[in-house]
Structure formats: structure tokens, C-alpha cells
């Protein structure tokens, strides 16, 4: 639901991701992280809603 709410308010849904990875599944963990980093690099950083420096 959070994902679809973010999508509704104009955030790319690829930016939020949830997976179940057990402590013994090191390989899966690495795969998930590599995949999401690759995807995020393709989208690039979010240009809006950037917190202003104080």
C-alpha cells in the first residue's frame, strides 16, 4: 500500500522495494542489493523533495 501511495504521489515505485532474505541466504542478499542498485542507477537521483541544507 505504501508503494502504491508513493506511486500515486508521483514517486517512481522502483525506489521502494521489499524482499524476504534469511540470514543464511548471503547470495540472495547480494543479488537483491546489486539488482536494486543497478535499477536505481538507471533512474538517477530523485530531483524533487530534496531537503534544504540548514
Amino acid at each position: 500500500m505504501l508503494r502504491s501511495l508513493l506511486e500515486f504521489s508521483g514517486i517512481n515505485p522502483l525506489r521502494l522495494r521489499m524482499s524476504w532474505v534469511s540470514a543464511s541466504e548471503g547470495k540472495k542478499f547480494a543479488d537483491v542489493i546489486t539488482e536494486i542498485t543497478k535499477e536505481l542507477q538507471e533512474i538517477g537521483p530523485q530531483q524533487s523533495y530534496i531537503r534544504e541544507a540548514v
Binding site: E7, F8, S9, G10, I11, N12, S48, Y49
Partner: peptide, 13 residues
């Protein structure tokens, strides 16, 4: 929902 992502973003911003 059917609007493109950028348009929704602009609206909410």
C-alpha cells in the same frame, strides 16, 4: 492514477 508519473509529481509538489 492514469496520469503520467511526472504530472502526478508536479501536481503534488
Amino acid at each position: 492514477e492514469a496520469l503520467p508519473l511526472e504530472e502526478r509529481l508536479a501536481y503534488w509538489q
